[in-house]
Amino acid sequence: CHSECLGNCSQPDDPTKCVACRNFYLDGRCVETCPPPYYHFQDWRCVNFSFCQDLHHKCKNSRRQGCHQYVIHNNKCIPECPSGYTMNSSNLLCTPCLGPCPKVCHLLEGEKTIDSVTSAQELRGCTVINGSLIINIRGGNNLAAELEANLGLIEEISGYLKIRRSYALVSLSFFRKLRLIRGETLEIGNYSFYALDNQNLRQLWDWSKHNLTITQGKLFFHYNPKLCLSEIHKMEEVSGTKGRQERNDIALKTNGDQASCENELLKFSYIRTSFDKILLRWEPYWPPDFRDLLGFMLFYKEAPYQNVTEFDGQDACGSNSWTVVDIDPPLRSNDPKSQNHPGWLMRGLKPWTQYAIFVKTLVTFSDERRTYGAKSDIIYVQTDATNPSVPLDPISVSNSSSQIILKWKPPSDPNGNITHYLVFWERQAEDSELFELDYCLKGLKLPSRTWSPPFESEDSQKHNQSEYEDSAGECCSCPKTDSQILKELEESSFRKTFEDYLHNVVFVPRKT
């Protein structure tokens, strides 16, 4: 048989008469490798580009789960590009990614509803959504962080984005990388972005840091009482949809009607710091009717980097990364020049730590249904340095008659930039024990000054392991946590139920 035959053949030295091919099969003959313009397919066939392209389009058009959109890589027609490569849609070739590779997620039936953290986790790592997304989240724990972890990498949506009755959302900033909504599939009414009845939605994105392009379709905003109209108009300008909307697409009466839409800028007039305090004062603000001013709200939190936005980490279910302080308005003076500047002394802060701070007014709604208010920009203030805590785990070892090696770990709280350490030492008198000992005694162990690591005695271990207080009263049991108490109650309830079950099964009433 021919060298490319495997198993047997019907005619000697003829690659077209093989029972099976050793390498690849091409047009009725066995070959060692697939010549151009053919590609290896499933490690035994040679196919042309049209064959591989037909497989790709067949799966793409069917949208069946589990099928493969075949691509070409290293002269092979394979189910998908290997790690580190992405497909070129024009020629199906796998090309190296520039940075992290995109991950295209194809949605069944063309859309997916995100109504819980669990459903959001199914899209973790996706960068391109081939379909439409509907966000409908009523509640949950730590929602802002969970949504950002699972949806934060999405850069492109081919269909539309719909935010509907998501009472738990305060902001859409968890879509931190969303840059493009194509609108290839539109919501009824030709809408590519749809926001309806979101009672706590206050911000779409921080438009000073976020760009969003909507290729096709219109915007729809109705019944978002805490979303200011200025935020919607800003989205029109940034996304390129200005002029597409009709009169009733953006409701003037049901958007922002319960919001404090600040239209003035508060400026800080005085800032002073110490290692654990920050004193702030800002310019006074009074609405047209000074009785509408209820006070100020001061927001602050630790910020290692200057990239904080107002609604980071917030949701309507209680999660809030900001510390909020309510401040009463100052006494009002008739003389504008003698107006008191409101302020606040922030206490209990960490030394040498940068804080993000902003302040906003708290006002009631005027009778004319106009909203007044003022808010400052987010500023960054760093507390002063102070003395560091003591170095940890000092170790001293003498390696000769004239040297001592000293080692330690950095302090747990540096409280500033540590530039150097101060080492103090003092000579001590020799131990009298060394002169009084009889060095001729056998088995004498000389006193040693070398360091030995501390260890816990058996008594201390027994005390720590004991669940009861000892007789001397030195140790006591740790208080039980809520989960331990709940577990004990469940076990007790189970024992009672099981005992009742045994009584009912074992003891049967005697027939009379």
Rank of each mutant, 00 (worst) to 15 (best):
F296C: 01
E246M: 13
D206Y: 05
N150Y: 06
P391I: 04
I181R: 01
L298W: 02
E262C: 05
L349M: 08
Y194S: 13
N399Y: 12
L331M: 13
K253D: 05
I135S: 05
S400P: 12
S366R: 01
G159P: 01
L147E: 00
Q203M: 12
R369M: 06
L349I: 09
E302S: 12
W344F: 11
L298F: 13
F268Y: 10
D326S: 04
I379G: 07
D328N: 13
V170I: 14
E148T: 09
L186E: 09
D335I: 11
S274T: 09
L153V: 13
K177M: 10
K162V: 14
D206R: 07
D206L: 07
A145S: 08
Q403G: 11
P351L: 02
I134T: 15
E187F: 07
C105R: 08
T213A: 09
Q216T: 14
S158T: 10
H222R: 08
I327L: 01
F299D: 06
A144N: 05
E122C: 11
L178E: 01
L186P: 10
C317H: 15
G131Y: 02
T386M: 06
L143V: 08
T386Q: 03
P287T: 06
G295A: 08
S158Q: 10
I134D: 04
M346T: 08
K226Q: 03
R179S: 10
K277A: 09
L227G: 00
G183H: 03
Y167F: 13
A251G: 14
K226T: 05
P225R: 03
E302T: 09
N263K: 11
P411L: 04
T113E: 07
N263P: 08
E156S: 05
Q258A: 04
E246S: 09
R202G: 05
D377M: 09
L123E: 01
P410F: 08
Q382T: 14
S333C: 15
E237I: 10
F221I: 15
S333K: 13
E237F: 06
K267S: 12
E264R: 07
D276A: 13
W207Y: 10
R244H: 07
Y191I: 15
L345V: 07
G183L: 02
N211V: 10
L392C: 15
Y191T: 12
F365L: 05
E236G: 04
Q306S: 12
A195I: 14
T273Q: 14
D328K: 10
D367H: 06
Q121F: 04
R165V: 08
N190Q: 15
V117C: 04
D206N: 11
N190H: 14
L212M: 12
L345F: 14
I278N: 01
Q121E: 04
G217M: 03
F290Y: 14
S173C: 10
N387S: 05
A251I: 12
N255W: 04
N224W: 11
D312S: 12
